[in-house]
Structure formats: structure tokens, C-alpha cells
Design a protein around this nucleic acid. Sequence first.
DNA 1: CCGGCATGTGTGACCGTGAACATGCCCAAC
DNA 2: GTTGGGCATGTTCACGGTCACACATGCCGG
Lengths: 339, 339
Amino acid sequence: MSVEPQRGRAPSIRDVARLAGVSHQTVSRVLNHHPSIRPETKQRVLDVMAELQYKPNRAARALVTSRSRTIGILSASSTQYGPASSIAAIEAAARAAGYWVSTANIESSDAGSIADGLAHLAAQGIEGLVVIAPQVRVFDTLAQLSIDVPYVTLQSTGRDPDHAMSVDQMAGARLATRHLIQLGHRSIYHLAGPQDWIEAEARMRGFLDEMGAHDVPTTAPILGDWTAEFGYYAGRELLTVRDFTAIFSSNDQMALGLMHAIRDAGLEIPRDISIVGFDDIPEAAHFWPPLTTVRQDFAELGRRCVALLLGDLDPAAPDYRGTIVPELIVRASTGPAAF
Amino acid sequence: MSVEPQRGRAPSIRDVARLAGVSHQTVSRVLNHHPSIRPETKQRVLDVMAELQYKPNRAARALVTSRSRTIGILSASSTQYGPASSIAAIEAAARAAGYWVSTANIESSDAGSIADGLAHLAAQGIEGLVVIAPQVRVFDTLAQLSIDVPYVTLQSTGRDPDHAMSVDQMAGARLATRHLIQLGHRSIYHLAGPQDWIEAEARMRGFLDEMGAHDVPTTAPILGDWTAEFGYYAGRELLTVRDFTAIFSSNDQMALGLMHAIRDAGLEIPRDISIVGFDDIPEAAHFWPPLTTVRQDFAELGRRCVALLLGDLDPAAPDYRGTIVPELIVRASTGPAAF
DNA sequence: CCGGCATGTGTGACCGTGAACATGCCCAAC
DNA sequence: GTTGGGCATGTTCACGGTCACACATGCCGG
């Protein structure tokens, strides 16, 4: 009887079984923490596993259980701080729960690109999906491809509590808006995110609601693309008229661009114009001037997101439902209204 | 003979075979573009596949071929623009080549955290590894875990051309340094990255070499952690002495923090102090003042990285070896030396 | 006219794991 | 003393692909 380790192949449970003098099924039971295994048998098996540096074969397991233990992330703008932080947190949380994460980034948000990304994820049999992207289009595409998988969105308007793990974006936006109103601002612009991002919409609604609650008249929000570049050009446009004293930007990058445009025009922040951002990226504290913004806990968001998803997958998993309350961080980019 | 689709399970090649009136092996041949299949047979199989929405089962394929077609990324600081951009590009390139990507982020760079991340990747049988992290420790850990997988590092000092896909970091650092020297600066500090990041070391060496080449005396670089926060505090420290007219920061975030500290001290950039960054993150153009920096093409880097890895994996893949030349972007944060 | 080879297709084994079912044993309850 | 049930373990099969090999057919050359 040969007890030699195989040549090329990694050791399998059968190799372990042979060396431990048990059946492969007993090894499998040890792996899966089956209750009725004699402690000494279990120990013997564990010893052999350690000796052989046995590692379970994920593909084999996935095949027989038809469970991939993989969560997919469909992400746009993954180079931005917010999405990137959430992705990192999702990955960490998933790993802690014994899941793997596979990411598909979409560069453009056209339907084809989304479909490609989703197909790529679907092809590996993801068990859950986190969407950090223009959500409306993603869900349309999901339906078209008849991919049926539990999903979670990172943000929400509160409409769809089963699928959304929300930092309360609306509350955050209201916080930011109220801050400006309380400083005496009455003509406030809102630089929003892309139209089909649900969080952009939520922030916009928070802005509009708060303005309405204080009977402050509003102008139509400007739809941006999250980039500093856009903020800069939007700022240049706005300054040709200059009928406002404050701008609430729906993220920090666009706020940075705005501030650049405002300084270029020879104006001072916050003396002439106040700016509020959203996200509190780590750099925001070092902008000039340091940016007043709304802090989101992206990491907590990512963690809860996974918990919510695993709640569908694994009824035993803890459920952290409930919104995360964002926090207004007042720095130097806001001040009393000039007129 | 039942030709009904199965209840719960997804269709398999055997289902396709039955409906197309061929053997499962023929279906497999169609999937793998085997040359000798009659066109009409092939078409019939393809039609049935489309009708059934057949999707190959990745786990089954991985099991039998013992190839996962998965590339692992071990990443630290994945929320920073540089790593995040490279990850996105790697993912795109891998996807285009029919590979999947799995990421493990490490929060702290201690050995335990690295080992966890690597074990997680190894457990899914990655075929290649991209390291965007403190590389020295990673390789030690790889060896300890006796994980044997082709790997690539994103950056390099040029020492290890087989495993490194390099933007020529040293050349970039020399570009930045030369720019300052040519502006007349003679006392220049370098704010470096963490010690065990190879790109940090490369940039540092580039700085030192260029200074040496011009016979400019140097002080010891300050070792930072890539964050704006660190840049800010390092700046405050440095300004207590103020024996310099320029600082070359090894990334843009730290440069941002430096500029904040300099303004806090009542000094002006670049009148009193010039600052050069590294990376050219999209926000750098909107810093105050807009930052002179070295542009790296992170996306190209990611793409080549995958190509290099696949070169080991798949001899047919194109090989883009050769360094990418970084580019100095002169903006408003640098000017002639004040004294 | 037959052997050899290319072409097109089918049969059966196998990859590593887990589930269902079977087995043998011990102990308690009737 | 038989029966029944839990425990610890083994046997067999299935998962959905690919691979090695077998086989039928047709064409070509000696």
C-alpha cells in the first residue's frame, strides 16, 4: 500500500483519509464540523491535514453543493474614495464570513457595459450582488439577463428597505442644507450626482425637502458626474451669474472643483460663498479651506451590506438592519451668508 | 423520453446534448471550439444553448481542469486612487482575457494580516498574484505559507524584471527632483512612502540619485504613510526649522497635507516653498495651488501587469514588457527658489 | 482492394467533495 | 430478550464538466 504523496496534484480528502486510516467521508465530516465524530478520530484527521498542508478544493465543494460562497460587486467609479472604501469593507466582511468577493467594474454606464459586468459575475455563480453603480439601469439589465440573485444596494431612498443598506442619505443631505440655512443662506445651489445613482437622488431629495421645510425657494439642481473636473466647470458656469451665496455639493470631489473655480474668480471661501460637501474623504480636512461636509461611514456600510445579503443567504447571520446616521463635520468652508 | 428542463438545477451540457440530439462530449467540443465539428451540428448545439440559456459551470470546469482562471490581488491602501485605479484596470484586463479577479485587502501591514489575505486567496486556487502592498513582507509570507504561484508586483526598482511591471518610478522621481533643482532649489526635502513599499523605495532612490547627480546635498527622507494627515503633521514638524525651499512628496495626498501645513504657517506656495507630488490623482489639478506632480498611468500599468502574469500562464498572451515612462505635469505649486 | 489517416462523433472514467443510505455497536425501554 | 434509537463510521453515488480512447465513415495511395 502506497502512502506516498501524489506528484502534481494537491492532497485531497482521500489522501488525508488514507493516512489517517479512515474513510474520506469521515474527513469530510471533520471539515464540516459534523457533531458525531470521536474526538480522537477528529484529532488524528486534523493532524494528518496539518502534516499534508491539506486545503479544501473550492471548486469541488462548489460543484457538489452548488454554492459558490461568492459575492459579486458591480461597481462604477471604483477609484473614488467612497466606492473604494465600501468595496474594501465588503471584502473584509465577506472574508470574515467565509465568502469570496468578485468585482466587476464598469467604465461607462451604458447598458452594454453593465450587461458585460453582470454576465461576468453571473458566470461564476455569485450568490449575492452588491450594486455600487447607476442602480436603475443595473436592475433593468439584471431582469433582462434573467439573473436571479439576492442583491443589496449601498444606498437608498428608503423605498426598498429589503434591498438597501442605507446610510440615511436624505438625512445627511438635510443636515448639510440646514447648516447652510441656519447660517443665513437663502440662495443655495445644489450640485447633484448623476441622475441614475440612487444616492445622488436621495441627497437631492434631502436637499429639496429641507429647503422646502424652511420655505426657501430652490433652483433646479445641477447634475454632475462626481468628478472634481465637473465641479470646476460647473463652478465657472455658475459664477457667470453669481446669484447665490452657498452651494451644497453631493460629494467632496465636486466641492473641490467648485472651490477651485471660486478662487479662480477671485472670490473667497467662505466669505463670499460657502461650500458643503458630502462623504468626508480623508483629504477633505486638508482642502483649502478645509471642507465642511457630511461624514458617511463607508466601512460600516459595507459591513452591514454583507450582513444583509448573508441574511438572505444564511439565516443564521446577524442582521444589522437600520440606518446609519451620517454626521455633519463643520470645517472652514462654510460661514454666515454675505448678503 | 423526457425532454423537460430540470426543476431547480441549471441546464448542463447533458441537457443541451439531449435536446440537440448529440452526445455531451459534442457539446463540450462546441464550447471549447474544437476544430472538427460539422458546422450544422455546431449550430444546432449553439441554438439549444441559447434556448436553454445554458451557462457553463465554472466550478465543474475548474475541478476537472484544475485551473481556476482566477487572479488574486493582495492590496493595501486600496482606497487610495493609485491602487484603486490599478485594481480596476487589472480587473478589466483579466476579464477581457477570460479570467476572474479576487481581491484581498489588508488593513494593517503586519504579518498576520498578510498571511490571512494570502491564505484566503490561496484557498480559491488563484493562478497568479498581483501584489499592491508592502512587498518585502508579502514575499516572506508567501514563502512561509509555501504558496507557489506566479506573481507580479506593480512597481519596481528594476531589480527583478521578471516579476515587476514597472512604471519607472525612479525615472519619475528624478524628473520631479530635477524640476526642483532646475528652478534653483538647493535644500529639498523628500517625504517618502512607507519603508517596505518597493515603489516608495524606488522613488526615494530616484530622488537621492538625482540630487547626487547634481551634487546637491541631501537630508534623510522622512518616511510617511501615504496619507494627507501624515503630510500635514510632517509639514508642521518641518516648518519649526524651515531650512528648505522645496519638498518632493512621494504621493499627492501627502503633498496636500504638506500644503495645508504650509498655509497654516502663513507661508505661500510656491513663493516661499515649492511642492511636487507623485501620481497625478484627478483631484491634484484642483488643489490650491494646483499641484505639480508626476503622472503615472495606473490603468496601463494594471493592463500590462495582467499581460505579464498571463504570459506565465498562457504562453499565447501578448507580452507588453518594457517600462512605462512617467510624465512630469507642471502646475502652480512649484516656482523659483526664494533664496 | 486494402491499409492508413483524417474527420466527426460517442462512451466511460475521473476530478474532489458532500449527501443519502447502510452498517455495526451500545444502551435503554418494553 | 427483543426492539428501537442514537452514535460513529463506511459505501456509493452525484455534481458538471474534460479527457483518453473507441468507433464509424470517407478518401487517398500503393
